[in-house]
Design a protein around this nucleic acid. Structure first.
Lengths: 196, 196
DNA sequence: CGGATAATTCAACAAGCGTTGAATTAGGAG
DNA sequence: CTCCTAATTCAACGCTTGTTGAATTATCCG
């Protein structure tokens, strides 16, 4: 317990430990509610280390949220195939990503976005402009219509994430991923190609 | 500016002022981010008044969130009529309520629920047990199926609220209420009576 | 008119926050 | 072997927070 002062022997994993702890704390509590001291405790290091490696709490958050998922790659994968079951593929892949460890960075971003405009801006930009609109643009060329459909899809997907990962509404929270995807898919499909 | 000490002359609206300011601040910022001092400033009173009237910050929040909407009454109104367009009526009435001043109390509750388990519990209880499941129970008597359908509807409705009022995703945020309700209605209807 | 009560301001408290600077120790370069 | 740099702990700072108690003034009941 009485940690010795000064640099310890051997290689250091402190930086990675902090990032892991930060991802966990930010995604559980959101930006303000998570504390630098709390993250340091979880990581098992002195709070000063966080400033040593990341400068400020905000920079740590941005490092935490620097998504390990490349939207471009994801998009291309989902877009190959018929548009008839695009809703199904999109729903399935979406849940896969959010169920993965990468999802917790997303939850951190979402939780914080519900509290801070600067974070909400990041999320809007990512969700609409970078992810959804490009998909829809391959189906509907009219930008107004594409934006409207993208917005509708966003309501369903955001609601899914909030209900499953943040509010933990049962039975959605513990539902089987495939079953949930199957139930949501027709909704996405209608927003993509149906009457709206 | 130099407010005189002691009780002022005339009737007092302070209590109501505080409640109004609290609703605004809580719904804009969420529970922790909103401060007692900030609410007092908006209300134009001393912070001590808040404790005088409400005791603690948490009690003030609960008073703020004591919804001015009676779910029982709302339910009966929505449930009268054919089940074929129940989704449509539900979507329309839902948006009406959230567009009304009563909605900002809801947004406060939601924002806080994304941060605090005790608030999430309130919201879950309200949303699922008190609001959605009773509706579905009138259609499907199997409790497992009813719970599943209620969960699905919750994902769509929660997502609608988060996108429109919290994240302010365009074009959903400024969309015409009726048009938005019409686009969402088929989704609700399928979750109510369709194949899931 | 007198006394209880309610409304208000002010000043201060303890606790928790993010952040900083100095001290200490190890590793690596020349 | 000797510096320089990087990693770490510790102690403290200034700030903001929720909350409290005393002082002050008006209203209301008898």
């Amino acid at each position: 317990m009485t940690a010795r002062r000064g640099r310890p022997a051997g290689a250091s994993t402190t930086r990675a430990n902090i990032l892991g702890a930060a991802r966990a704390e930010f995604s559980e509590r959101g930006y303000d509610t998570a504390t630098v001291r709390g993250i340091a405790t979880v990581a098992g290091v002195d709070p000063a280390m966080i400033h040593h490696f990341f400068g400020t709490k905000e920079k740590l958050f941005l490092a935490t949220v620097d998504l390990p998922v490349d939207p471009q790659t994801e998009l291309r994968a989902v877009l190959t195939g018929s548009t008839d079951d695009l809703g199904s593929r999109l729903a399935a892949r979406f849940l896969e990503v959010w169920d993965s460890p990468a999802g917790s960075a997303g939850v951190a971003l979402l939780r914080t976005s519900l509290q801070h405009e600067w974070s909400a801006k990041l999320l809007r930009e990512f969700l609409l402009v970078r992810a959804l609109r490009p998909i829809i643009h391959t189906i509907h060329t009219d930008p107004t219509e594409a934006a409207w459909r993208a917005g509708l899809i966003a309501t369903q997907l955001v609601g899914l994430v909030v209900a499953r990962y943040v509010l933990k509404l049962e039975p959605v929270a513990s539902a089987d991923r495939a079953e949930l995807a199957a139930s949501i898919a027709p909704t996405i499909q209608r927003y993509l190609t149906g009457t709206v």
